[in-house]
Simulated assay, not measured.
Amino acid sequence: MFDHVKFGVSDYAASRAFFVEALKPLGVTIVAEGEPSYGIELSAGSEASLCLFETQEKPAHIHLAFAAKTRQEVDAFYRAALEAGGKDNGAPGLRPHYHVNYYAAFVIDPDGHNIEAVCHAPEA
């Protein structure tokens, strides 16, 4: 749905480690990286990418939702994100108030951003 999203982080090393590990279960890998002021670009092989760079500016908190192909990927994202230093913001499960098959998990990243993995498909 987007070409790329780029945002600043206050602790590049912590955020880099968090996103690389938390998104690995979703097939996301590093596609480019430079100095912390340039940052890192992550992608799952599509044209869309997530970029982050180190800055001391304080942006408002954001919400990023990453697409998962299966509910198992959502579960794996949640476990990996917590192991990478994320904080729980909603364990994996159905969110029927969005729609009947909305299966998601939410974590807070090192900068306080709400990071989600969501699968819209029915259970296999």
Rank of each mutant, 00 (worst) to 15 (best):
M1H: 09
D3T: 10
D3L: 12
D3S: 11
H4N: 10
V5F: 15
K6T: 09
K6Q: 07
K6C: 03
F7Y: 14
V9E: 00
S10Q: 14
A13E: 14
A14T: 04
A17C: 04
A17F: 01
A17K: 14
F18V: 10
V20F: 01
V20M: 06
L23F: 10
L23N: 02
K24H: 10
G27H: 11
G27R: 08
V28C: 05
I30P: 00
I30Y: 02
V31T: 14
A32S: 13
A32V: 01
E33Y: 00
E33D: 03
G34C: 03
E35F: 02
P36Q: 02
P36R: 01
S37A: 12
Y38F: 13
Y38K: 03
E41C: 09
L42H: 05
L42C: 03
L42V: 09
A44E: 13
G45V: 11
E47Y: 03
A48H: 10
S49L: 11
S49T: 14
L50R: 02
C51F: 13
F53I: 00
F53T: 00
E54Y: 02
E57L: 13
E57R: 15
E57K: 15
P59D: 07
P59H: 12
I62K: 15
I62V: 15
H63F: 07
L64Y: 06
A65E: 15
A65R: 08
A65H: 04
F66H: 08
F66M: 12
A67G: 09
A68W: 14
A68P: 05
K69D: 15
R71V: 07
Q72F: 03
D75Q: 13
A76H: 11
A76W: 09
F77K: 11
F77L: 08
R79H: 06
A80H: 12
A80G: 05
A81E: 05
L82V: 05
E83K: 14
E83I: 04
A84D: 08
A84W: 05
A84E: 09
A84L: 06
G86I: 11
D88H: 11
D88V: 07
A91N: 02
A91P: 05
P92H: 13
R95C: 05
R95S: 08
H99Y: 13
H99L: 11
N101H: 15
N101Y: 14
Y102D: 06
Y102L: 11
A104H: 07
A105K: 09
A105C: 06
V107M: 06
I108Y: 04
D109Y: 09
D111N: 13
G112Q: 04
G112C: 09
H113E: 02
E116G: 01
E116Y: 03
A117I: 09
A117S: 15
V118R: 03
V118M: 12
V118S: 04
C119N: 06
C119I: 11
C119A: 13
H120Q: 07
P122S: 10
P122R: 14
P122Q: 10
E123K: 15
E123G: 02
A124R: 11
